[in-house]
């Protein structure tokens, strides 16, 4: 009985705190994306010649983001029945947008006009056989040009 209460408590905590953090993060992302909208980010550049570039520098942005208890619980159930795990989709979206933004903000500080040949990398962190900490690292890197 106490176990069920504890789980329900954790679920409620995960749901309310988690969705609050997520909402804040999305608002923050939107605001920062608007501020950095002038810098174009493209994934071309390896074979295409870049016109009028004099200087180049590598920029890396990364973030480790964690799921909350509620999301992990829901994902566990969906995993059983199959289907889209929407709770993790939003998690991945937040992580990717955050990583790209960090890269862009660094590049803007350096005075880049464009970030070219951007690559995204995802790595799963930890997770003891599907249990424990569910977290994911997203890395964005590219070349800023002036």
């Amino acid at each position: 009985m106490e176990g069920i209460v504890a789980i329900l408590g954790l679920l409620a905590l995960g749901f309310f705190a988690g969705s609050n953090i997520e909402k804040k993060h999305f608002a923050d992302l939107q605001e920062r994306e608007y501020r950095t909208r002038d810098l174009t980010v493209i994934s071309l550049g390896a074979k295409t010649p870049i016109p009028k570039a004099n200087r180049a520098k590598l920029f890396v942005g990364s973030v480790v983001i964690s799921s909350d208890y509620f999301k992990t619980f829901v994902a566990g159930w969906i995993n059983f029945f199959g289907g889209r795990i929407t709770s993790y989709e939003s998690l991945m979206e937040r992580a990717r947008r955050e990583a790209i933004l960090r890269m862009k903000e660094d590049a803007i500080q350096w005075g880049a006009q464009q970030v070219v040949n951007v690559r995204l990398e995802t790595a799963e962190m930890g997770g003891r056989g599907g249990q424990g900490i569910v977290s994911v690292e997203v890395l964005a890197y590219g070349t800023g040009i002036q």
Binding site: L13, V64, S66, K71, I133, E137
Partner: peptide, 21 residues
């Protein structure tokens, strides 16, 4: 890891891990 396991309940960025990596 302990700090992260608390953070794992409510979600969000794990700053310690971000820095570590």
């Amino acid at each position: 890891d302990i700090a992260a396991s608390f953070k794992n309940l409510i979600g969000g960025e794990l700053k310690g891990y971000t820095e570590l990596l």
